[in-house]
Write a protein that binds this DNA or RNA. Structure first.
Lengths: 339, 339
DNA sequence: CTGAAAGCGCTTACAG
DNA sequence: CTGAAAGCGCTTACAG
């Protein structure tokens, strides 16, 4: 039973003494085929180490059993270091795909380049998961285009009013509230915020809003001067905090829009001789692995990445099946550590 | 120019006023086709948002332009946390694939499960990259099987004598030497080693050997009692170090087979009131992102993941092309920080 | 329950 | 330089 090249269903048919149609049915466990025949076909297939050719079956059935993950990063981010939060999402998405019997095609790209969003057009994937920060206004038009082309996709990110695409996101507003409540309990009400509080980063903006509104409800107004812009990197958080300090801005608490920003901010504070948490309490967002390693360990708002991956995949599959799907909001979780 | 479903090359042919064969040639930029014709075809294709059906073209050409990445983890590892070192490799592999025009299929799996190594058999991928720690003896037989099936694959990991598969690896032995030289310079010659110094983990074993041999060359013999077994997790490093301390084993330096182990070890030392680096100097291995966040920042042996990803991909592609390929050894790099 | 046949959308030798 | 045709390896209606 040796062959040149890979065995095909015709080879199996030959050795099992049945027709090729029957082999195909048996291998797909069609109820139409006799149990004895089915067994025999499976046996021969195993012996010849036969695997159905996915290109052929996908071509025939017009689907791919594959999902694509598009990870787009802020182009200013250091190439070599991927945001650990996304990496953790990637792990949970892969697992969720495997569980559903789908393969996952992964692609990184900086938002400047051409989008490799043609996975569906080229029949490589049945749908796309979009994951990434970056300027929302920059890629909004791309999303619009995907919608027009009727591409099946789901985004990780903020649900913006009027945003027509399907999203799965953390309740960023609620997460901001959690951070504010925590600081209010600690009697730290003179707060700085580091992150992009604008429509460019809807996730960050929602975190900021939840934070601000919670203070407002207590009659406390956040000072505009204490807001510094930053993208989600350690360096950006570091420099934003530095500039606050340089401008003689004082505060006794700091809410960072992400853990990476928080870690950079803490570094800037420590360098300036400001003690964390004694002088300034810090709350981050994400709960990346490093949050528990840094010293002092970072208090942060956790996003449930395992659940997020599962929802992303299951929502996308529903969409592909043509079912009605709602955008999903996942509850965040305050992790109190030492900052 | 509206269609039901996706446009095919026949649609393009129709609108461009040429035959379908010509469309195919024009789109693949065959030199056989007239420049004017080529332009026209591309124009129509763009207008109809046409993309070549990969399933069809792959089926026809009998290749896939796809590589598969199999990440296998130690089954004892916490499900939710993937080893950050591999995550960083994943990033560089993805980038290297993109550069070569290949897609990347990613799959995680615990070594207990069935291997999803049938990507090539099912024509989903032209080759496989294997990445992971775990017990080498456990999966050796699987590698053997892949070789017998003539699967194209390349492994990240130690080049073991007599190991017949193609590998790309860090010079783990050299890395161990680097760690030893550093500690010798610091006059810390009473060393503990935490990690699996056996054939079960060839990478760890090589690190240990390089470390041990460098001390031996100075006439210093490592004490067997100061070696504790650990897999590459923080917890494992923590417990291994704890047990050393509990057994009253003394040492003034510690070489951990990985950063995760080192981070756990430092925690155990600190809890026991042992100061790092004053009482015990610690050197890790990998240089994961967290290594620079921990306090004190971890001195460690860096593996060049960017280069590693590139070599993995380019070696695999050479192998697929049927070229002669040698296993590759990448030079490590000592990063001196505060431990 | 089984088999012969059509066809998924391409690529490429073959013939001009 | 171009077109008509074969064929990649499957799945599945259709006919028994």
């Amino acid at each position: 039973m040796k062959h040149k090249g890979k065995a095909t269903s015709f080879d199996i048919a030959h050795y099992a003494g049945v027709s090729q149609s029957t082999v195909s049915r048996a291998l797909r466990n069609s109820p139409l085929v006799n149990e004895e025949t089915r067994r025999k076909v499976h046996e021969v297939a195993a012996k010849l180490n036969y695997k159905v050719d996915k290109n052929a079956s996908n071509l025939r059935t017009q689907q791919s059993s594959t999902l694509a993950l598009l990870l787009f990063e802020d182009p200013t981010t250091d190439e070599s270091q991927i945001n650990p939060f996304f990496l953790s999402m990637l792990g949970s998405i892969t697992r969720a795909c495997a569980k559903e019997g789908y393969d996952l095609l992964v692609s990184f790209q900086s938002s400047s380049q051409d989008w490799r969003a043609d996975y569906e057009d080229s029949h490589r994937a049945d749908g796309i998961i979009l994951l990434g920060y970056g300027d929302y206004l920059d890629y909004q038009s791309r999303l619009q285009q995907l919608l027009e082309q009727n591409t099946k996709f789901v985004c990780w990110g903020a649900k913006v009013d009027g945003r027509p695409d399907l999203t799965v996101s953390c309740d960023n507003y609620g997460g901001g509230q959690l951070a504010a409540q925590h600081l209010i309990e600690q009697k730290r009400t003179d707060c700085a915020f580091i992150g992009d509080a604008s429509h460019h980063s809807p996730e960050f903006f929602a975190r900021y809003q939840g934070f601000r509104d919670t203070f407002l409800a207590q009659g406390i107004q956040l000072n505009e001067r204490k807001i510094a812009n930053a993208i989600s990197t350690q360096d950006s958080g570091y420099h934003a905090t530095k500039s606050l300090i340089a401008n003689n801005v004082h505060f006794n608490a700091l809410f960072a829009a992400s853990d990476l920003i928080a870690i950079g901010a803490i570094r800037a504070l420590q360098e300036a001789g400001i003690m964390v948490p004694n002088d300034v309490r810090v709350v981050g967002f994400d709960n990346i692995p490093a949050a528990s390693y840094v010293s002092p360990a970072l208090t942060t708002v956790q996003q449930n990445t395992t659940l997020a991956g599962q929802m992303l995949v299951s929502n996308l599959l529903s969409l592909i099946r043509g079912e009605e799907v709602e955008s999903t909001l996942l509850p965040p979780n305050l992790i109190v550590r030492n900052t």
